[in-house]
Design a protein around this nucleic acid. Structure first.
Length: 426
RNA sequence: GGGGGAAUGUCCCGAGUGGCAAAGGGGGCGGACUGUAAAUCCGCUGGCGUCAGCCUUCGUAGGUUCGAGUCCUACUUCCCCCA
């Protein structure tokens, strides 16, 4: 049953649901009152699953990570489930095509690379509310096909599976859905059952697109005689102007620093739309609600102060205090004082490869601000490029190394108003 | 089994009727205006380039033609109708 209708009037008795509700994390819950009671009466173990399709999580995952964080802060036990096994199958959700099958090696590399992110937000260990990380490859890969069908397959009807969004949408759009992908929801359901048995895990959380998968797990746990299980989803994260959140210079907003620098991460939050500031402060920082209310109330240009707080807090959680301070300082030097900071994104170039210096085109491409020479030339023609703070118009004009900044030894390349990269000769 | 459709710039949708680097949207990027915001307006949106030009793109593979996204043949995938 969906709790959308009575969520507004519901008064949680547990800290956990109280926090989730007032900070805007809840979209749907299977059984609000029973879950509330369980969370009030004792320690609840809950999990969120993460696939290993890339070597870094991105901002879309952050909302559920924050939810696990609050779970732990309110006295419960979070499990981060790594989908080492399910990634081999691929969640069909909302994709038109099956994603390329990943090899074991790639999946394991991705998994290892993602782990660190959770350690920033959760406390791991052996205590009763310490976080646990598990990999569903541990149990999924042990299952034989016939065994899998007999143990779990009997509990799923095709009739019902066809009605779930992940499947239905694909079929409606006349896109193929392979049998492989069709099995994904069964596998995710067995995860919940397995965690219920191993860790007494009684709650699965996830994004609203996971509702169908979560329900399947809840029902499977019930049918296999486990303890009562719950599901909870978060709202889809979009900006106020209706866009999917998460884009920067390079595209996706990655959480690993080697994919997206702390500076760029800070900038992403700094550029939040006015209308989103309050909502994002509630979802992505630990700040008390009273303080958020004050920040949110700032009007006009003043709200920029709130955006800086948001950027600072969010960056501090992910990358740590030092990086957050450095990112803010770099931004202030650059945008408010018109100066240069060594903390700006920097690329290094072999001086010997370009003895005379770099052409404007080369600079833009090497700085990663354009994917091709053509694109770089176009940008220059549009008057979008600045080298060492002066606008350039000739794509072939060469800037000699002697023009590098005296102290930092770098050339400053700027595309548009916000994208700045330092080119450092070595 | 028979008949009829569909596949376009690798982000998406979508015109396209032998001369096409291919209309128009959306998205994205840049400019103006602002507050590193939103909204609005304007421009750009295949690659290489000594800017003359060259190269690669319309499901796949062949063919006709001076010239093919456009015509022909086969194949692949999807949709619809008849059985």
């Amino acid at each position: 049953m969906s709790a959308e209708t009575d969520l507004a009037s519901f008064r949680p008795k547990s800290d956990f649901l109280q926090v989730l509700k007032e900070r805007g994390f809840i979209h749907q819950v299977t059984d609000l009152e029973a879950l509330d009671e369980a969370a009030r009466a004792g320690v609840v173990t809950a999990y969120v699953g993460y696939d290993c399709t890339a070597d870094s999580l991105h901002i879309g995952h952050l909302i559920s990570i924050m939810m696990l964080r609050w779970l732990q802060k309110t006295g419960h036990r979070p499990i981060a489930l790594m989908g080492g096994g399910t990634t081999k199958v691929g969640d069909p959700t909302d994709k038109d095509q099956q994603r390329p099958l990943l090899t074991d090696a790639v999946i394991n590399t991705n998994l290892a690379s993602i782990k660190g992110t959770f350690q920033k937000f959760l406390r791991f260990g052996d205590g009763p509310t310490d976080a646990v990380m598990v990999n569903n490859a541990d149990w999924l890969e042990q299952l034989g096909y016939v065994e899998f069908l007999r143990e779990f397959g009997v509990h799923f009807t095709i009739n019902r599976m066809l009605t779930f969004d992940s499947v239905r949408i694909r079929l409606e759009r006349e896109q193929p859905l392979s049998f492989l992908e069709f099995n994904y929801m069964l596998m995710q359901a067995t995860d919940f059952l397995e965690l219920n048995r191993r860790f007494d895990c009684s709650l699965q959380m996830g994004g609203s697109d996971q509702w169908g998968n979560i329900i399947n797990g809840v029902e499977l746990v019930r049918r296999k005689g486990g303890r009562q299980a719950f599901g909870l989803t978060t709202p889809l994260l979009t900006t106020s102007s209706g866009e999917k959140m998460g884009k920067t210079v390079g595209g996706a907003v990655w959480l690993n620093a080697d994919r997206l620098s702390p500076y760029d991460y800070w900038q992403m939050w700094r550029n939040t739309e006015d209308a989103d500031v309050g909502r994002f402060l509630r979802l992505f920082t630990d700040l008390p609600l009273a303080e958020i209310a004050k920040l949110e109330a700032l009007a006009g240009a003043e709200i920029n102060e709130a955006k800086k707080v948001l950027a600072g807090e969010a960056t501090r959680l992910l990358h740590g205090e030092n990086e957050a301070v450095a990112a803010e300082l770099a931004a202030r030097l650059n945008f408010e004082d018109g100066r240069i900071s060594a903390d700006l994104p920097t690329v290094t170039v072999e001086r010997s490869s370009y003895p005379h210096g770099l052409s404007n085109t080369d600079l833009v491409v090497l700085a990663g601000l354009a994917p091709s020479n053509s694109e770089a030339r176009r940008k220059i023609a549009e008057g979008a490029v600045r080298v060492n703070d002066s606008k350039v118009s000739d794509p072939r004009e060469v800037t000699p190394w002697s023009a590098a900044h005296a102290e930092l030894g770098v050339l400053k390349v700027q595309l548009g108003k916000k994208k700045i990269v330092l080119v450092k000769p070595i």
